[in-house]
Design a protein around this nucleic acid. Structure first.
Length: 477
RNA sequence: CGGGGUGUAGCUCAGCUUGGUUAGAGCGCAGCGUUCGGGACGCUGAGGCCGAGCGUUCAAAUCGCUCCACCCCGACCA
């Protein structure tokens, strides 16, 4: 595998699927567009889930589960929603050998079935806010699929909340965006650009869509998570009412928000290199792998015993550690194997080390090797893992800064071919101007929430008119 | 849904142009032995409806037609 930055677009695609398969993250399945998520990747997903689920519970959200099947008529109740999702629906027409009276769609997202239920849950302002989350799978009939980044079935969490005031709903959508920001920056070690979507890029049926966008190492942007201010659209469409404090009947204001297993793909594309995967320690299923090196059988027994002791100590210190005691492959093979699988830290333990009372620690991120004293491992290893975690984020942040440019005219976007990344561009807010970006295979990724970025500084780069914002433009996955 | 490509051992592929013994290689897998600080080696062995169907022929992995699947590239999408 060559250095990622040197690869052409098609080769990146090949590198990506290579890493996915060789690092045992996913397997292609018998079904087009659907992958098998292997234990290694699922374990990473569980680590993300655990953190996010805890945060959601800490902010008073509760988990629930709604049906996989949704009556077709439900999807059709919200005008924009149906227009947005109709082309992507998988529809069940038969069951038990009979044609169904009404077809059932396999959920592409659950707003409709959930609001149909909320009608009976919400009567009074005392029932609000209603803060529900569900972990599940969804299906969207994609034409062009890629493992994790876009598959026909994927896993996610979808939050659906209802509030008594519009301000509360917006505050909720923003709170979640903030939680996503922490998840992605603190755990995945990937910097995000938080912002709002242009009307054109908004979720079907939303009043406003908030997004966190990141840059992959090939300079393309990836939408990492979204949080929608749905206004009263779904409440209205599904006839959800509450009697407010002042005796007036109102539709509640609602939000929905999601992150998906796409984040697993982001991990590969944001940190991977020519050796393969590189996992941030806080998410790595195996943070430390110990590779024993021995010449004779009795030496092996001694070294394996020592390795087992180190592993036990590290486990007590909260480190996820594994001893690679395979005898059928050489240490050199193991080095490459674990590097491909992205384990952040490797400890080599051989006869020399036993003698000197040390291990040799090899960092996946910098390829540096250094001896570590056995006495202080319980402190030095967690510290080193933390250093790697921070370093990965810093490196990704530097990469993003170096790939963020200004575009003052449309012609500046021609540079996208040479130098892909975020291009900050003044925009009048007109859809005609936005559509011109297609000439460069680019889209408006977001209007940054950070006003130092989004405050316009000149004229609209496309039409020369009065700009409304500066927006982040990029090629996207 | 359009364009391109590929289907032969678990994987990567050769063989097909010019039809003809028992279909091959490397890797992987199993057993045994030697190895082990950056992808070790030797010996032995298991493993195939040549993507599916129909046709041409004395004879098809090989020629023709149809279908299917997957990958890559574009328009639509988390």
């Amino acid at each position: 595998m060559a250095e990622l930055e040197e690869l052409q677009e098609g080769d990146i695609a090949e590198w990506y699927s290579d890493v996915i398969v060789k690092a045992q993250l996913a397997d292609y399945s018998a079904v087009r567009g659907c992958v098998v998520i292997r234990p290694y990747a699922y374990s990473i997903w569980e680590n993300m889930q655990r953190w996010l689920d805890d945060r959601l519970k800490a902010t008073n959200h509760q988990n629930a589960y709604f049906p996989l099947f949704i009556p077709l008529s439900f999807i059709q109740k919200e005008k924009e929603h149906v227009e947005g999702f109709a082309p992507q629906l998988a529809v069940v027409t038969h069951g038990g050998g009979q044609e169904l009276a009404e077809p059932l769609v396999v959920r592409p997202t659950s707003e409709t079935i959930i609001y149909d239920t909320y009608r009976s849950w919400v009567q009074s302002y005392r029932d609000l806010p209603l803060l529900i989350n569900q972990w599940c799978n969804v299906v969207r009939w994609e034409l062009r699929t890629r493992p994790f980044l876009r598959s026909m079935e994927f896993l996610w969490q979808e939050g659906h909340t209802a509030h008594a005031t519009p301000d509360e709903a917006v505050a909720e959508a923003r709170l979640i965006l903030d939680i996503y920001t922490h998840l992605i920056q603190d755990l995945l070690a990937i910097p995000v650009l938080p912002g709002r979507k242009s009307p054109r890029e908004r979720f079907a049926g939303a009043r406003d869509t908030y997004t966190v966008e990141s840059l992959m190492r090939d300079g393309k942007a990836l939408q990492m998570g979204t949080s929608h201010d749905l206004g009263q659209n779904f409440a209205q469409a599904f006839d959800v009412w509450f009697l407010d404090r002042d005796g007036v009947r109102r539709w509640p204001w609602s939000t929905s928000w999601a992150v998906t297993t796409r984040l697993l793909g982001a991990l590969v594309l944001a940190h991977g290199d020519r050796k393969g995967l590189l996992l941030p320690p806080r998410l790595a299923p195996i943070q430390v792998v110990i590779v024993p090196i021995a010449r004779s059988d009795e030496q092996r027994a001694q070294i394996l015993a020592a390795a087992g002791g180190i592993a036990a100590d590290l486990k007590v210190a909260g480190v996820r550690v594994q001893v690679d005691s395979r005898e059928e492959v050489t240490p050199g093979f193991k080095f490459n194997d674990w590097e491909l699988r992205g384990v952040p830290l490797r400890l080599e333990l051989g006869p020399r080390d036993i003698q000197r009372h040390q291990v040799v620690a090899a960092r996946r991120d910098t390829a540096e090797k250094a001896p570590l004293s056995l006495e202080t491992l319980k402190a030095s290893i967690p510290a080193l893992l933390e250093e790697i975690q921070i370093g990965l984020f810093q490196r990704a942040l530097r990469f993003r800064d170096e790939h963020t440019f200004a575009a003052t005219t449309l012609a500046d976007l021609e540079k996208l071919d040479e130098q892909s990344g975020f291009y900050l561009m003044n925009w009048c807010g007109g859809e005609e101007c936005e559509l011109r970006l297609a000439d460069f295979k680019a889209t408006i990724r977001c209007i940054p929430l950070d006003e130092t970025l989004s405050t316009p500084t000149g004229r609209c780069a496309v039409c020369g008119g009065q700009p409304q914002h500066r927006v982040a433009v990029a090629k996207a996955y």
